[in-house]
Nucleic acid binder design. Sequence first.
RNA 1: GCGCCUGUAGCUCAGUAGGAUAGAGCGUCGGACUUCGAAUCCGCAGGUCGCAGGUUCGAUUCCUGCCAGGCGCACCA
Length: 585
Amino acid sequence: MAGLIVRAVKSVAAEEGWSQEILKPVLDRGLRLEWPKKEEFGDLSTPFVLGLSKGLGKPPRVLAEKVLQAINHDPESQILLKKIEIAGPGYINLTLSSSFLLEFLEAVISSDDLVEKVSIPRSINVEFVSANPTGPLHVGHGRGAAFGDSLARILREVGHRVSTEYYINDAGNQMNMLGKSVYLAFRKLEGTFTPEEKSRLLGDQDGYRGDYIPDIAKKIRDEQTLLSPEVRSEALAGQFTDRVQSAFTHVAQTEIMAGIREDLRRFGVSFDRFFSEKTLHETPGGDGLPRIGHWIDLLERESGGIVYESEGAVWFRTTAMGDDKDRVLKKSDGSYTYFAADIAYHADKIERGFETLVDVWGADHHGYQARMQAVVKTLSGRVGKAVDLKVCLIQLVSLLREGKAVSMSTRAGEYVTLGEVLDEVGVDATRFSYLTRSHESSLEFDLAKAKERSMDNPVFYVQYAHARVKSLLAQAALRNVRHESFNVQDLAVLSEPAERSLIRLLAQFSGVLLRAAESFEVHPLTDYLTTLAGAYHHYYFHHRILSSEEKDRPVMIARIGLSIAVSRVLKKGLSLLGVSAPDTM
RNA sequence: GCGCCUGUAGCUCAGUAGGAUAGAGCGUCGGACUUCGAAUCCGCAGGUCGCAGGUUCGAUUCCUGCCAGGCGCACCA
């Protein structure tokens, strides 16, 4: 369709001698086609001549008229279009021909592939959740999980090569603190806990305090094989040796990660890879150094001063890329910062050949963005190919119950876990609710409303539309109405405006997905499905589909076909959100 | 102090790379079930798009400055 218009513009340009500079911005970016809000404005619409008018010094409507003539002369327009109009300040509004719409509908009913693919597939890595294995996932992680997983599904659906990844922050002080917290809980169980020991291990810090800590301690006490006999006897004797530290840390992390994986599985989220930060510290790189050291040294040598040594530490010159101060990579005690590990991790991803890196972070990490962009820019410059980093910042989720805030404090271990929300609300409603809003807006998640079957909670509205079609088909089967294939002739009897509107909406599905993939957003799909479900409910209420009158049979068949098309798109869309499309509710 | 996100109907939010009369749902009020599932549908009301400037033929959208809320600014992770 865009091709048709581009051809027309070019032919007019040739005739009128328009300069390339003026046309370039319009044609390069591809022609922008909008879906007009009102059907009286046609099925597709473009305001692009408005942008052209200034450069050419002619009124937009005059230009639009020329383009319109050229489109009319194109033989393809006879097939695709029913009507072209100029409206408003200079919009060109296109109304699709019914033969085009019916062919499209036929394809939706019978084709295996409902979704258009991108012309240039990319190799994309989507990293999300990546919660520290120091406690169960909470509602905030849930939002990131739903978003990242659905985004990955959408990117894959439109034809990109997508790999999903969870980065486990399993190195550093937080993990040691976790091990100590479990150790102290273990001592408590044994009745040998003392406040002195706690302050010796943790100083004035509290450690981790959630319910899961004593649970893990109990498990260690009850399952002999979790600790070696030596470690166990040291722990029982109150000797907090290095190997006690590492054994308790290891068990705690394993248990917690198992819980996280289980929550993710229930939530319908899967990862192609779990990437351990610890392996970056341990595995030697090409020159025998740990991989972090490998990358930092390499950058120091090759980055032309972007990585430099000063005051006994190694720094990254992030100020050169807009950060407000330079950041330390290697501390003066020789250990690496978290930032250094993250550089190594992103270097690794780039080395594995991804062209686009998507990082899904909690919004509280936004201060990190400028520096990661700087890193990826530097690293990809080194590899000699442009690697894009797209950071998606997921805003806060505030949990409510009947409008009242549920108080949460991660520090004190008082928070509602994702698992608890899934128990109470269910997977479908939770995922859908998370994805109804832009990830850049903070989200109010009301547990009571999320369970309600009302438009407060549109997941049921969309699922119901799908179930309605299935129920209709079952009803049709009972009446011995069978029809395997629907061709354009069968469908041509659809003449109601509401039917045309539905087909028009179905035709937007691919575009919604392509645009969502381009802008790395998910909620446009959620909105679209709600709109489509609404249009079907409206249609269903006002039009009788099944009929026992023989004369109505052709219309009945066509309406069944249309209903099938709607249900297929709903089902595909819901599946991209990770939401089921049940046949009955 | 610096930086990021947000400010649109009573509430929760959409608003497509500057374009047509700014849209949904909820809530309020009033209607529609002998008929394929009423978990549905139809209607009414509701707006100075935070405020003030600027760019433009045209600004909710871009720029500047304020105001308000949230979140960041470690040789922590």
